[in-house]
């Protein structure tokens, strides 16, 4: 089988190479246009910027000033990192507790978490944003609590699935040796949960980093914008969009993701597979 496939292998390699080029084309197109004078972007999107079309880094400078890109980047990074950390810490502890304590309360909790996974955000968006506002959760710190709440369903579900496969004897041995439940959790259980932590972290980070609607409705966006909000803001209300700044900001939004992806590709792909199998 291997030999026969190898004979035609190069045709497929050629086909997929061309397809891969087509796949990255939209992003390359944006990159090319980000160096073009703004009036030429809509008119001649497929031409290489040369001569009077080429503007060096002008679009980048103007875009960064317009939407305060680096503030938005900082906010996005802060919210994503701390929300994911809070989700992992709190939901793994919660999942361990409701898996180990067999009671009606535990199973009710479990099913409510499960149920919350199929509820679309639109169902709660209005009431959630009003409630968050009343509780003064409109800062980057406050929104962490909102993400912990809305993201808990999937995480608890995934941690519960894994905790059930850990043999009870290990924990019992630790308890008999005099560990408190907190010590048992952090010194024995949490290290075993590490693979699930990575999966949960990747799925949640992908969601929170790119999320638009929740921060748009919850955050006080006059003071704090995330990257998706800043980009949407660039489009503004009426009138023409500054296509030059738009292209430049799209490039800046994509670059960190590509770097992160190249660095952690192995974990990301493994995380997606593990997440899908349990979901």
């Amino acid at each position: 089988m291997g030999v026969r496939k190898a004979k035609y292998g190069w045709i497929f390699t050629l086909f997929f190479s061309l397809l891969s080029l087509a796949w990255v084309f939209p992003i390359v197109l944006v990159l090319v246009n980000s160096f073009k004078k703004k009036v030429y972007i809509s008119r001649k999107p497929f031409e290489i910027p040369n001569g009077k079309m080429f503007v060096e880094l002008e679009n980048y400078v103007r875009g960064i000033e317009k939407i305060h890109f680096f503030d938005a980047f900082k906010n996005s990074l802060f919210i994503t990192v701390f929300s994911v950390a809070a989700i992992i810490l709190c939901t793994s502890m919660c999942a361990w507790y409701i898996s180990r304590i067999k009671s009606k309360f535990s199973s009710v909790m479990y099913y409510i978490f499960l149920f919350s996974m199929i509820v679309p955000f639109q169902m709660v968006m209005f009431t959630l944003s009003k409630l968050a506002n009343m509780l003064h959760l409109y800062s980057p710190i406050g929104i962490i609590l909102v993400y912990l709440g809305f993201g808990a369903g999937l995480s608890v579900f995934m941690f519960c699935g894994f905790v059930r496969s850990i043999p009870l004897e290990i924990e019992e041995a630790a308890m008999i040796d005099g560990c408190t439940p907190i010590q048992t959790f952090f010194q024995v259980v949490f290290p075993i949960l590490k693979p699930t932590c990575i999966t949960v972290a990747i799925l949640q980070a992908m969601w929170i980093w790119n999320d638009y609607l929740l921060p748009y409705l919850v955050l006080d966006i006059k003071r704090w914008k995330t990257i998706p909000i800043a980009i949407q803001y660039l489009k503004g209300g009426y009138g023409s969009v500054d296509m030059g700044a738009m292209m430049a900001m799209l490039v800046l939004a994509i670059i960190p993701i590509v770097i992160f992806y190249m660095a952690c590709q192995k974990y990301i792909i493994a995380g997606v597979v593990a997440g899908a199998v349990k979901g």
């Binding site: 709190c90 502890m93 180990r100 709660v124 609590l145 912990l148 809305f150 019992e172 439940p181 907190i182």
Partner: peptide, 28 residues
């Protein structure tokens, strides 16, 4: 183990439960 863990409810469950109540149960 059930017994000793049960006392730790506030540490293990309460943060998630509180956030979940604010972020999901009440709005829903």
């Amino acid at each position: 183990m059930q017994h000793s863990l049960k006392k730790y409810f506030p540490v293990f469950v309460l943060p998630t439960l509180a956030a979940f109540t604010i972020g999901f149960i009440i709005p829903f």
